[in-house]
Amino acid sequence: MTGAALGALLLTTITSSLTALRVDKFWQQAIVGVLILTAIIIDRVASLRTAKKLRISEARNV
């Protein structure tokens, strides 16, 4: 829940900072899309890593 709210806040911040950075209007939406996809991929990579670590530590305990 907090994560979702933070995400929404982040997106709004990104949009207004893109305007403030004078990024071309026509590129803004594409950039937002890329950022969303990057976020999902990073999330996935992070969770895969945690899973791997857990597996290793479990293996040691055995």
Binding site: I31, L37, R44
Partner: peptide, 25 residues
């Protein structure tokens, strides 16, 4: 990559529409 389709296609929803804007303005 096994990413959730809802999240991925929300991203590409923005990305593809954005590219359309980039192409034709």
């Amino acid at each position: 990559l096994g990413l959730p389709s809802l999240a991925v296609t929300i991203g590409t929803l923005a990305l593809f529409r954005g590219l359309a804007l980039v192409i034709i303005g």
